[in-house]
Amino acid sequence: MFLDLNVPYPSHGGDMSELKKTVRLLHQFGYAGAAYTVTVSGKDANKPNPIKPLKLSELGIPTTQAAERCASSVSALVSASPAPPAPFQQLTRLTVVVDDIAANYQLNSNNAHLLTYDLIAVQPTSEKLFQAACSVLECDIISLDMSARLPFFLKAPTVNLALQRGLVFEISYSAAIRDPTARKNLVSNAAALVRITRGKGVLLTSDARKAMEVRGVYDVINLASIFSLPQDRAKHALDATCRAVLLHAATRKQIHRGVVAMEPAGTLAQHDKWKAGVAAADIAGSS
């Protein structure tokens, strides 16, 4: 189940036609879902979520009313089910550009606006902010602008600290399609990241501003070989790592200063009812 967890969402109510083309193409390429991304500066992290799911039926993607209602279900994507209930899952993501070590970005569970997003990513702009993102900031993804020369060196102790916290590092490939200079920087920066992480905790996304910048799953896997990322790791970066990010996000939102989360047995999906250790009929009767 492949996902693209970085598809830019038009800002300020802009033209949605390009986003619709991108989503339609992702579905045709075999992706099971995408995360629509809003990028803001740190001071704007407390604004309401502007993202609205698209109507899949208008994009020519076969669906039902029930599937439309659960088209943004994170639980469906992280469950043991081999496929989500909807033909294309639509998620929301906020990317916060952090540029001041002294600023309070309110990246915590007390920020009601942040809870409306499925995923939170941070983009540090200095070495100190990168260290803060890897060690203390509450997020799911660390996104670096790899299309430009990084203002700091990636150090193994800092990167490993982020991996221990369950965070992942994002590599967006569309910059390599748009500009030759950006391609050179992307290959160099991505190779350095892969060398330090050994291919673990790496997330491959498109960040496609136009539909023509989207590539199929196996094209992306082949492209990742330029970053010295083995094919099995590249496949994980589009599949298993995406599920791990969503699970991390769900845990971050639902569990605050705790180690156990509890849900009524009646809320379990049909394929997960065996986990309760009782018959499905008993679960239905108790709900």
Rank of each mutant, 00 (worst) to 15 (best):
M1I: 10
F2W: 12
L3T: 03
L3N: 08
L5D: 00
Y9F: 15
G13H: 08
G14S: 12
D15H: 14
D15M: 04
M16Q: 14
R24D: 13
L25R: 15
L25Y: 12
H27M: 07
H27T: 08
Q28P: 07
F29Q: 14
A32T: 08
A34P: 02
Y36W: 14
V38N: 08
T39M: 10
S41Y: 11
G42D: 07
N49P: 07
P50T: 06
L54W: 07
K55A: 09
L59W: 11
G60E: 08
A66Y: 00
E68R: 03
A71V: 02
A71Q: 15
V74P: 07
S75Y: 07
A76K: 10
S81E: 14
S81N: 13
A83P: 03
P87D: 10
P87Q: 11
Q89P: 08
Q89R: 09
Q90K: 13
T92H: 12
V97C: 15
V97R: 15
D99K: 13
D100A: 01
I101C: 04
A102L: 05
A103C: 02
Q106Y: 01
N111K: 01
L114C: 02
T116K: 06
D118I: 02
I120T: 05
A121I: 00
V122K: 11
Q123I: 05
P124A: 04
S126A: 11
K128V: 03
A132L: 11
A132K: 15
A132H: 10
C134T: 05
E138F: 09
S143C: 13
S143Y: 04
D145K: 12
S147H: 14
A148Y: 13
A148P: 06
R149Q: 15
P157G: 01
R165E: 04
R165S: 06
G166N: 05
S172Y: 00
Y173H: 06
A176W: 06
I177R: 11
I177Q: 07
D179T: 02
T181R: 13
T181M: 08
T181Q: 13
K184C: 09
N185I: 01
L186R: 05
V187S: 06
S188R: 15
N189H: 03
A191E: 11
A192V: 01
V194F: 03
V194H: 00
V194N: 05
K200P: 00
G201P: 00
V202M: 01
L203A: 02
T205V: 02
T205A: 04
A211Y: 03
M212A: 13
V214Y: 10
V217R: 08
V217N: 05
Y218E: 15
D219C: 04
V220L: 10
I221Q: 09
I221F: 05
N222L: 11
L223A: 08
F227N: 06
F227L: 07
S228I: 06
L229T: 13
P230R: 07
A234I: 08
H236P: 01
D239W: 02
A240W: 08
A240L: 14
T241P: 03
T251A: 11
T251Q: 13
I255Y: 07
H256W: 12
R257N: 15
G258L: 12
V260T: 15
E263S: 12
A265H: 00
G266Q: 05
G266M: 04
T267G: 03
H271C: 05
K273P: 00
A276S: 02
G277I: 05
A280W: 09
A281P: 10
I283Y: 12
G285T: 13
